[in-house]
Simulated assay, not measured.
Amino acid sequence: MTLDIIIFIASVVFGISLYWSETKSNGLYRAINKLTHSKELQMKPENKKGFFVNQEFIPRLIYVNLLFIIALLFLLLLPFKIQADFYVSAVVGTLIGVYLGSFVVKVKGTSENLFDSVVDTGKEIIDDIKTKEKEAPEFVKEDVNSTAVEAEEKTTHTEEPEAPKKSARERLKDKGLLK
């Protein structure tokens, strides 16, 4: 039982490393694609598809099974005796590891994109503040000077008596809304 758990955990880590290494370079899949497909049907250079990357569940299951069958055949050819009882836990663990690896790679990619967009937005805001700060003193000085001049003019003109204002009732009577 403990050996089964150890093999399961090791195969999960193996699946994560398989997915991660295939996201970096899918050279083996690309080489097999060149051998099996005509020139028109071959993968485009920007295509990231691989044995585990951008595949559905059934192709991933087939590729993991083929990988372990080849490994077991190789181990059976060796002169010492091995047990193949842990095949299922190794396959299941590797599939879980592949899906965990795809989740980690996607989260890492989106978090990097999110971080980059936040940093770019922050830089734009800081640049806007800097440019407004350089332009603002001229406008502020003009506005401050003009308001100061207007305030002085008001103080000089307020010495003259103003006409008394009508009350709200009188204005409504003028409009004909009150009797």
Rank of each mutant, 00 (worst) to 15 (best):
A71R: 09
D4E: 07
L61A: 15
S25C: 12
D85L: 07
I125F: 15
M1C: 03
E135N: 12
V92W: 07
E150A: 12
S117F: 08
I69N: 02
K48S: 09
L178Q: 01
L177T: 00
E159P: 00
I16N: 06
L78N: 06
T156E: 12
F52M: 13
R60L: 08
K48P: 05
A148I: 04
T147V: 05
I16A: 10
K48L: 04
G101R: 03
Y99G: 01
F115M: 14
F14N: 13
T158G: 11
F139E: 09
S146F: 07
E142A: 13
H37F: 03
V98R: 06
I58A: 12
T110D: 15
N145H: 05
D127E: 14
D85G: 09
T36S: 03
G109P: 04
F103P: 00
L177C: 02
R30S: 01
K165H: 08
P164S: 04
F51L: 04
L41H: 02
E124L: 14
I32F: 01
K175F: 00
K130P: 00
K34D: 00
S102R: 13
W20G: 06
L95N: 11
I70S: 11
G109T: 11
K24D: 11
L3S: 11
S146K: 14
L72D: 03
N54R: 09
I32S: 01
F8H: 05
R171Y: 02
D143E: 09
K132L: 12
L77F: 07
K132W: 09
V105S: 10
L75K: 08
M1R: 08
T131C: 00
I96S: 12
I82A: 03
T23L: 14
A148G: 13
T36P: 06
T2D: 09
E159G: 14
A84I: 11
S102T: 04
K24E: 14
Q55W: 00
Q83N: 10
S21T: 14
I82T: 12
P137V: 06
T2H: 11
Q83C: 03
L41Y: 01
R171S: 03
E152C: 05
F14V: 13
I5N: 02
S111C: 11
R60D: 02
Y99V: 04
D143R: 11
I82N: 04
F80L: 03
L78R: 09
F74E: 05
E160L: 11
F57H: 08
K132T: 08
M1Y: 07
E124W: 13
E22V: 08
S17P: 00
I82M: 04
K130T: 12
S17K: 10
L75D: 12
T156I: 11
V64E: 04
F57C: 07
G122H: 12
E56P: 00
N33S: 15
N113V: 08
I62W: 07
A84Y: 13
E162Y: 06
N145Y: 07
V104C: 02
L28S: 09
L35W: 00
Y19C: 14
L77P: 01
L177P: 01
V53A: 08
L41R: 04
K108R: 13
T147S: 09
V92D: 02
E124K: 15
G27C: 05
S146V: 02
Q83P: 00
K175T: 01
I6P: 00
V98G: 09
